[in-house]
Design a protein around this nucleic acid. Structure first.
Lengths: 230, 230
DNA sequence: CGTGGCTTTGACCGTTTGGTCAAATCATTA
DNA sequence: TAATGATTTGACCAAACGGTCAAAGCCACG
């Protein structure tokens, strides 16, 4: 899961549960598709829902829009998912793990500055390759995270606390310029996701220039100067 | 408009058109309230609309919600504004100028690093004092800025280009470490607005600690190290 | 105190929304 | 190929939506 090949732009992220181990015991939470048609249609629905939710937010999205985008009738869509809420929840569950992978990969054994710069690079690459996923989360959180708050204060908090402790250790060992480790992580989220979430604004301001052109070097420079040896 | 007194948290920003010069010729665009009641109710509606739009986005907000929050019946609200669109437009017009003031204040005559750090400080203060305004714009832009795109590629672009040129001049004069000026400005938007737009997430991760506690020093340090003399 | 304009409201309208259901169609396999 | 379960659909529903309207209430001023 380390390197992201980005031949496919604006495509759904690789499904962590695609091609499951044969005869895998069926987990309670996500009913495994029993047929080809189910697999195809459930995938099409989630793909369409990502389009619509990321562009309109939960309340702004309509079941009809999602059904149309998936090439299904509304009752047919509701044959696969019991409600709009359920589609959103399924999407959330599927995306969240992959979304946090770049942070999980930060390695205690690596060189501190390299690890952080690599995290920034991975996260920026996510914004470039998966802007819909970024906007999906942005919509949810800007509007108060009503459907995701529990996960944030448990799983996400645990992961961030762990990595913050790691960073803290690095700075205490003098291997990194001192910073507030949590806010360092926040700054990486902020700076990288901004390129996805505020894409239209950046393009409106830049005109012809693609925001993602200068972004990698800019962020690399920023964090090198901020964290590196003087 | 330079210093922001923040005694009132989560209150609407000062209306640039409040207390207009006596007998001012009435501009075409915004009908000046003729009566006390109009002034009070229009203000209450915009205040309520800011609450609702910033929390739900345009499509997610309903006229009934806004009316209820303003303490009016729906037909009564629609006596003051012809449509939901019109409320949103009025709010946008009222907020935009004030929202861009911190950037306008960046002064070519000042010390480069001081000017940028002061801009960061003002912008962060805006996020702290006016998070609803920040989320109002965030909702709009994440969802593709359908109601604001024209302004971005004209007014905003012009302002940013001007300030970017100023920064470019500073770095060429060797008074600032070299950076891509546009991306520098983007980074300031990103880092400061993140504290408003993603507030729930930051609080979920931090637990007790207030995100705004360590933010000023963190950002100050970041930009000092990035832009200052080694 | 009465009149004219400003304000408020209950009732209403057509449309959109999330969701249901029974019936029809399709695909698979015995 | 016949039967059975999976899939699809048109018709429908109640609630919510943005917005309208005529009538009623209220207020300021002569």
């Amino acid at each position: 899961m380390a390197t992201l090949s980005v031949k496919e732009l604006h495509r759904p992220m690789p499904d962590p549960q695609a091609a499951p181990p044969e005869k895998a015991a069926q987990g309670k939470s996500r009913p495994r598709p029993r047929t080809r048609i189910q697999a195809r249609n459930r995938a099409a629905i989630l793909e369409a829902a990502l389009d619509v939710f990321s562009a309109q937010g939960f309340r702004g999205a309509t079941v009809d829009q999602i059904a149309a985008a998936a090439g299904l009738s509304k009752p047919n869509l509701l044959y696969y998912f019991p409600s709009k809420e359920a589609i959103h929840a399924a999407l959330l569950e599927r995306l969240l793990d992959t979304w946090l992978d770049p942070l999980r990969e930060m390695d205690a054994e690596g060189d501190p500055l390299d690890e952080i710069l690599a995290y920034v690079r991975r996260k920026l690459e996510m914004s470039r390759a998966y802007p819909r996923e970024s906007r999906f989360f942005a919509n949810e959180i800007v509007q108060g995270a009503p459907r995701i708050h529990a996960v944030l204060s448990t799983d996400l908090k645990a992961l961030v606390d762990e990595k913050a402790a790691l960073i803290q250790g690095w700075t205490e060992a003098g291997r990194l310029a001192p910073v507030h480790p949590h806010h360092l992580i926040f700054s990486i989220w902020s700076l990288t996701q901004h390129y996805a979430d505020f894409d239209v604004q950046l393009r409106a301001v830049l005109g012809e220039e693609d925001p993602f052109e200068a972004a990698p070097e800019f962020l690399d420079t920023l964090y090198r100067r901020m964290l590196g040896p003087t």
